[in-house]
């Protein structure tokens, strides 16, 4: 089976100050997978995503999105940042935040019109937040805020989705809602890459996994490589996860 490579990372090295956060990362992410990036705190999971997206400048290495540089393929990529990265007391509404997803395709100066608003409303409906469209964002719960972020990425109608800990601090209902949307995206042939913390749910949610701890430990299908051996290599301790068949 020959699959297209959605994201290709070569020799990526990133450092804050003196200490390397990512070291010589080579990574191929095939098209259409739902992939988890797992690793301990400080392993560089968020950094990896941010470097691929050009938010951080790597010291060395290159990133290709469908064979071309990221700058050229920007419209194919959507990003869901960590929820905690923004100030939720910002004076704006849920619909407004989701509409921001259309800003990229609009470009400079042009304003969102009926078409963009419609797209934003549809995305809100997909994440089950239509009833909250006029709600001030500070008055949303953590899970609702996360869904708003997800909706904003959905509006971009991208081919590849990068998500930084979308399950952090959300309740069970939201977690299920989000994972259902991610699975739908995969069904539609999209590639979804998720920084994930909860090892127990990896086999249930994802079909592809990358183990990361400054260096890449392993990457591949969950059923082949999600085992105690790789977990121990990544986390340093003897980690045992029971995989339900």
């Amino acid at each position: 089976m020959k699959q297209n490579i959605a994201v290709q990372v070569d020799d990526l090295t990133v450092a804050y100050n003196y200490k390397p956060v990512l070291w010589d990362i080579d990574l191929e992410i095939p098209e259409g997978v739902l992939m988890a990036i797992v690793g301990p705190n400080g392993a560089g999971k968020s950094t990896l995503i941010k470097s691929i997206l050009g938010i951080l400048k790597p010291i060395a290495g290159s990133v290709r999105i469908y064979g071309k540089s990221y700058e050229k393929q920007r419209s194919l990529v959507a990003y869901v940042p960590q929820k905690g990265s923004v100030d939720w007391d910002f004076p704006t509404t849920a619909l407004d935040v989701v509409t921001m997803g259309t800003y990229g395709s609009l470009g400079w100066i042009k304003r969102p019109r009926q078409k963009q608003k419609k797209a934003a409303l549809e995305a809100l409906e997909k994440v089950g937040m239509l009833a909250f469209k006029s709600r001030q964002i500070s008055q949303l719960s953590g899970g609702q805020q996360q869904r708003i972020f997800l909706a904003r990425a959905l509006v971009q109608d991208a081919a590849i989705y990068f998500m930084d800990e979308p399950f952090q601090g959300v309740d069970a209902t939201t977690e299920i809602a989000i994972i259902n949307i991610l699975k739908e995206l995969r069904k539609a042939g999209k590639t979804v890459i998720v920084v994930h913390h909860d090892l127990q749910t990896v086999p249930e949610y994802f079909d592809w996994v990358t183990f990361l701890n400054v260096k890449k430990i392993a990457t591949g299908p969950v059923r082949d490589i999600f085992n105690d051996d790789n977990l121990t290599k990544t986390y340093g301790i003897n980690y045992k996860v029971s995989i339900q068949e």
């Binding site: 938010i55 920007r74 935040v97 921001m100 800003y103």
Partner: peptide
């Protein structure tokens, strides 16, 4: 529009 998105979420604005 540009001001607003920069204020709210700078990294995201960059990816757009």
């Amino acid at each position: 529009k540009e001001f607003k998105i920069l204020l709210f979420d700078k990294d995201y604005a960059k990816t757009l």
